[in-house]
Design a protein around this nucleic acid. Structure first.
Lengths: 134, 134
DNA sequence: TTAATTACCTATTGACATAGTAGGTAAAAG
DNA sequence: CTTTTACCTACTATGTCAATAGGTAATTAA
């Protein structure tokens, strides 16, 4: 299951893209449009800023804005930022699979095939695929 | 992420298929071969019995055995039994989607496409695809 | 008939993640 | 110098995960 953090992060990016006017967009406005608690969104945009997906500006006239073109945001990267690696089973999560059953595991190939499918799906989706054409 | 319950359930079915001798196989043996706590497996086989995937027999000479051919076990059904519906987001989980943003949601189509892909993947996998050919 | 073996049952636990809330400080613009 | 905004740390309630604990009931073999 994709959690609210991942889903809300995508919705924030969509909101920023669709309401882009060249300037900064206050979080208050995003929260109102998306009907999500502003307090909770603060946690999410913080991660997006730290990852370099958006930029924030304090003070009056401040807010957030995108720093790339919508085409250059990969949805899979956003999800992995908010939720950790797209991975179906614990033995494929770390850097290397150190499961002692690895060699004889009947199910491992299925999980690997599944993970590849999921990865390809979300890395093939761009923010530009989700916004309403202007 | 697929939890241990789902993964272990599949491994139990594989174990029963690969060690099938016509009779019942004690859980103790499965636990030893799979290196999983017997106590924990009790929870899992209970669900499998209740769902009609396997049958159990008490007493000496008892244990568990499959009640279908490996070809007739759909992996997706096993996973959904152990983990609940294969569903990526909360708004697609229940019987009907009552989200008020449904009509205008930019992301819903992506989640629906994703869920369909995942469903097709696991409903296309059979137990017979996972066992070592005898 | 009794001992061994096995499934089956209810309850409990520690650790962690999720989905937030609360109450502040710092920065920038008018 | 006041308003607006981002940014920061901490806290909390609820639920899920991954088991463990300690039994009872059923069945078979000696």
């Amino acid at each position: 299951m994709i959690s609210t953090k991942g889903r809300y992060a995508i919705r924030v990016l969509i909101d920023l893209a669709e309401n882009d006017n060249g300037g900064y967009i206050p979080l208050k406005d995003i929260a109102a449009r998306q009907e999500i608690s502003k307090k909770y969104l603060e946690i999410i945009v913080k991660d997006l800023v730290e990852a370099g997906f958006i930029v924030g500006a304090s003070g009056k006239g401040g807010g957030y804005k995108l720093c790339r073109k919508p085409k250059d945001y990969i949805i899979g990267e956003v999800i992995e930022l908010m939720e950790g690696p797209l991975c179906s089973v614990a033995c494929l999560a770390g850097e290397e699979n150190d499961c002692p059953r690895k060699g004889s595991c009947r199910t491992l190939p299925m999980w690997e095939e599944y993970d590849k499918m999921v990865h390809d799906f979300f890395y093939g989706k761009k923010l530009s695929d989700l916004i309403k054409k202007k």
